[in-house]
Design a protein around this nucleic acid. Structure first.
Length: 414
RNA sequence: GGAGAGAUGGCCGAGUGGUUGAAGGCGCACGCUUGGAAAGCGUGUGUGCCAGCAAUGGUACCGCAGGUUCGAAUCCUGUUCUCUCCGCCA
């Protein structure tokens, strides 16, 4: 959520950012509702002032019929005005919630194809067996039984591939802990307030990618980002305690409606996968620096694993509502002979922090919204694809990346 | 799932329908005191919204939502969460 005062003062900028992102919000209409709401607020406040004056003048003394009647009259007027105010407030805040975060100046304009490559690492080798065929041949993955038990795009991982998943997780976890992140497990469901505050679509929104629990105010998380955002909701953090760096591990549940096809084959896009997520709460002036820290950590993980990648600066049209800027790491796929999305990290500035009311008390006593950032350490299903594509052998075996061998009982190949 | 108890400021904790933004304490900030510190003493110390250049003023907030009343932290109803006990259970 953006600050309405910021929007009032930067209406054109906010409108432009929203349009660049592809969101159809009408800032002029928002400001009109804001005005209407403020006028009603003033009327209500004036009536309440009168009510309080009458009540105070009767304090302790004997009740006077004239004043009581006046009070009763006011109560009726006030109730009516308050109703208008409530309605205006709701209309206003519904629209306010739809306004996406502004984008940074260095975000490329345009759509998905306009994202800019910033760095690349490793060789773009070509030719490998499809990960699904490879894994099926070893009986490492079972989508058919996943479908039988849950539905399409659910799966079982078996044996050494399941162990490899654990090894990748543990390796990445050790690395992010060394960077100063605190490991956390998190609730796998969050309430609507937290989900929407973090910028996820509400229940009933057709575009929502989350599963909602019927009859309860709960959403299955699509990422640990949601419960991590809510962790400090309604808190005032101390400047001296920032940055707070968390690494949350959880399954991610996503509907991914209508995303079938060649490039989502196998484990690439599934309804459930495990993920280790980095999350930072920091001072506003530090968020750009923290964003670089996160992306560098991601690069360190993939360099250690020996998987070639490039980093792209995501174009405006491909940014989510909360993000002011986003980097994706895409690994080079020798199968598809192109880069494919592997991790993602966003600077959400104060958008999420406002959404769930997280502030920092500066050393001079001032209160300010914190900035939040999130980034994938490893998302497991996709990480497995990248490793299989790069470490497969002709005899159907898989060489274990050196850094993972300690986590696989010292085995060098499976 | 059942029964009981509770929810008040950064924390602990008072609170009779009006004198309560809310006693008292702790913490914190500043000052005095001191060679320096501690102790002691003094002063100050919530947030949101609205108006205002500002000083400031208005308004709301005692888990949340309604209700009663001229007036609610206080009375009533509902609800959420926490704790204790029972049930169930990895």
């Amino acid at each position: 959520m953006l600050d309405i005062r910021f929007i009032r003062e930067n209406a054109a900028l906010v409108q432009e950012s929203a349009t660049r992102k592809g969101y159809s919000v009408d800032i002029r209409e928002l400001l009109r509702l804001d005005d209407a709401r403020r006028q009603l607020q003033q009327q209500v406040d004036a009536l309440r002032t009168k009510r309080n004056e009458i009540a105070t003048s009767m304090k302790g003394g004997k009740p006077e019929q004239g004043l009581i009647d006046q009070g009763k009259q006011l109560k009726v007027e006030l109730a009516e005005r308050e109703q208008y105010l409530l309605a205006a407030d709701n209309e206003f805040s519904d629209l306010l919630k739809k306004v996406p975060n502004i984008i940074f100046d260095d975000v490329p304009l345009g759509g998905e194809e306009d994202s800019e490559e910033i760095r690349k690492w490793g060789d773009q080798k070509v030719g490998a067996k499809d990960h699904l065929d490879f894994a099926l041949a070893r009986d490492w993955v079972d989508f058919e039984r996943g479908a039988k038990v849950a539905g399409a795009k659910f799966y079982y991982l078996k044996g050494d591939l399941a162990l490899l998943e654990n090894a990748i997780t543990q390796f990445a976890l050790d690395l992010v802990i060394k960077k100063g992140f605190t490991y956390m497990t998190v609730p796998h469901m969050v309430n609507a307030r937290v989900a929407e505050g973090a910028g996820f679509a509400p229940k009933g929104d057709a575009s929502a990618n989350e599963y909602f629990i019927e009859g309860e105010d709960l959403t299955m998380i699509g990422t640990a980002e949601a419960p991590l955002t809510g962790y400090h909701a309604d808190e005032i953090l101390e400047e001296k305690n920032l940055p707070l760096m968390y690494a949350g591990y959880s399954p991610c549940y996503r509907k991914e409606a209508g995303t079938y096809g060649k490039f989502t084959r196998g484990l690439f896009r599934v309804h459930q996968f495990n993920k280790l997520e980095m999350y930072i709460f920091c001072l506003p002036e530090k968020s750009a620096e923290m964003h670089e820290l996160i992306v560098q950590t991601e690069e360190e993980i993939w360099q250690s694993l020996g998987v070639p990648y490039h980093v792209i600066n995501i174009a405006a049209g491909d940014l989510g509502a909360p993000a002011a800027k986003k980097y994706d790491l895409e690994y080079w796929s020798p199968v598809d002979e192109k880069y494919r999305e592997l991790t993602s990290c966003s600077n959400c500035t104060d958008y999420q922090a406002r959404g769930v009311n997280i502030r920092v008390r500066r050393s001079d006593g001032a209160l300010q919204s914190v900035h939040t950032l999130n980034g994938t350490a490893v998302s497991l299903a996709r990480s497995l694809i990248a490793v299989i594509e790069h470490y497969q052998n002709d005899d159907g075996s898989l060489t274990i990346p050196e850094v993972l061998q300690p986590y696989m009982g010292g085995r060098e190949r499976i």
